[in-house]
Design a protein around this nucleic acid. Structure first.
Length: 205
DNA sequence: GCCCAGGAGCATA
DNA sequence: TATGCTCATGGG
């Protein structure tokens, strides 16, 4: 059943090619919506920084507004964890203002960048351990899994509000709104493949 | 004007 | 465990 939904979505909407890397728009293979079909770029430090930042900024927020904030950071040449970590909090919150919740999100970003700075994950591309990342203030299950899946290609499926809604309506159950229960029931029926999880989540959104 | 977006933390019972 | 509140801008 789950695989049928994936196939139908892919057939109907075509490959989405997430994560959208707005700082690389204009390079061959990149659009504002995602990668071109079949393109899976080797991620660099700046790409991982951008994905982590976007994952936090998009919490309960439309991507259109997130993109404004990401562009402002890019224009201010904030491209690495160390750039963001040393920025005064007010300065940061004003830069990301269009994405909403800017005071909270500025704190969350500095916290998570501090974590990555200490562990060096954005530079090396070696993924952090899930429980440790989940322990960072402001980083809940969905944001953790978005980071692991899209910035580090770790095969964890991202469950979001749309997933709960869709499963409720199609299958009559979304595991009592239990994140890990629904995640388990979905991945159980799919190949354990980061590319599949990336595409499926993007299609659901 | 009104509604809500690719959540998470916290307070209270 | 479960509900309810808070955070906030901008586009449809």
């Amino acid at each position: 059943m789950v695989k049928d939904l994936y196939d139908t979505l892919l057939e109907t909407y075509g490959p989405q090619g997430w994560w959208p890397l707005s700082h690389r728009i204009g390079e061959p293979g990149f659009t504002s919506e995602g990668y071109h079909p079949g393109v899976f770029p080797v991620l660099r430090e700046e790409d991982r920084f951008h994905i982590v930042t976007g994952a936090v900024l998009t919490q309960n927020t439309a991507w259109k507004n997130v993109r404004k904030a990401l562009t402002a950071l890019e224009d201010a040449k904030i491209r690495r964890a160390e750039d963001l970590a040393v920025l005064p909090l007010d300065n940061l919150s004003q830069l990301i203002r269009p994405s909403g919740y800017y005071n909270q999100k500025a704190k969350k970003l500095q916290g998570v960048m501090g974590f990555f700075l200490r562990g060096g994950h954005l530079k090396t591309g070696i993924p952090p351990e899930r429980p440790r990342l989940l322990n960072v203030w402001g980083i809940g299950p969905e944001t953790v899994d978005s980071i692991l899946l899209y910035a580090f290609d770790v095969p964890v499926f991202v469950v979001d509000a749309y997933t709960f809604r869709l499963w409720e309506r199609f299958f009559g159950s979304s595991c009592n709104k239990d994140y890990h229960a629904l995640q388990e029931s979905i991945t159980r029926e799919l190949p354990r493949d980061a590319r599949v999880y990336q595409e499926f989540h993007a299609l659901i959104v």
